[in-house]
């Protein structure tokens, strides 16, 4: 086996660091993560990298390969024949060490979301064609590549103003569930910061699960927020009908 790949892997921590080059023999069908493991086993046992399933199911091995956010386990090395493969940690999050980023912010956000609140008890009666829409969102493996690439978080560091694409998908998953009864529209508009998204669709481009994050989750949610807050005619109708209903319920229910 004479063919070799040259990996240039970022080594360092919050005090800085730089890329170091490693030679890795080519094996057919090898993915970037295999190469990183090779380096770990032979040249640098302390090379920090997060991984679990190596099958694109768990979303642990997110990194930036030649500048693009990708899963290392799903990126074939033969895509980069004749090139040096640069591997860096996700940039949007603070670095821990080498390829490991501190993604704890995402878990903080996850806690803020109003959880699934069914209006009746299981077993639910829902048609397959009715749940297709939310099942797409359930494909998410929480690799946080969408959070990484989102310019609102990446370039503007607006983590206090926007939950990020991953959690727009999560909220869409709950919000559009046929049996869900909670109202997340105010949270989406205010704390969730859905208005921070300017639909430039990079999240959709990097999603390894091919979820149509922008078209199927964020934009429909934006439309629902618009229904509630930015639609003067609907507002007027709502106000008129509400007066007739008297003040029976204070909890806003879903349309």
């Amino acid at each position: 086996m004479s063919e070799q790949y040259v990996l240039s892997i970022f080594r360092g921590d919050q005090n800085g660091g730089e890329e170091q080059e490693y030679q890795v023999p080519a094996i057919p069908g090898m993915v970037v993560l295999d190469a990183v493991h090779y380096v770990q086993a032979h040249d640098a046992p302390d090379l920090g990298v997060r991984w679990n399933c190596k099958a694109a199911h768990c979303g642990s091995c997110s990194a930036e390969i030649n500048g693009m956010p990708k899963l290392m386990c799903k990126t074939r090395l033969d895509e980069y024949q004749g090139q040096v493969v640069h591997i860096q940690p996700m940039r949007t999050f603070p670095i821990v060490k080498d390829l490991v980023a501190d993604v704890s912010w995402n878990y903080e956000v996850a806690k803020k979301i109003a959880t699934f609140t069914p209006v009746n008890a299981a077993p639910f009666r829902m048609q397959q064609w009715d749940v297709d829409r939310v099942q797409e969102f359930h494909h998410c493996i929480e690799c946080f590549l969408c959070q990484d690439v989102c310019h609102v978080l990446r370039d503007h560091d607006a983590k206090d103003q926007y939950f990020g694409p991953r959690f727009m998908v999560k909220m869409a998953e709950f919000e559009m569930h046929p049996v869900d009864g909670a109202d997340r529209i105010p949270q989406l508009k205010n704390e969730g910061g859905i208005g921070m998204c300017n639909v430039t669709k990079c999240c959709t481009e990097v999603c390894p699960q091919h979820i149509h994050i922008t078209d199927n989750a964020i934009i429909p949610l934006k439309e629902r927020v618009a229904d509630r807050y930015y639609d003067p005619i609907r507002n007027l109708i709502r106000r008129l009908t509400k007066k007739e209903e008297s003040s029976s319920s204070t909890v806003p229910s879903k349309a």
Partner: peptide, 15 residues
């Protein structure tokens, strides 16, 4: 299912 898992459905709309 009660906690939010969305299983594939039968024609009757069940799991």
């Amino acid at each position: 299912e009660q906690w939010g898992a969305v299983f594939d459905r039968t024609p009757e709309g069940l799991i």
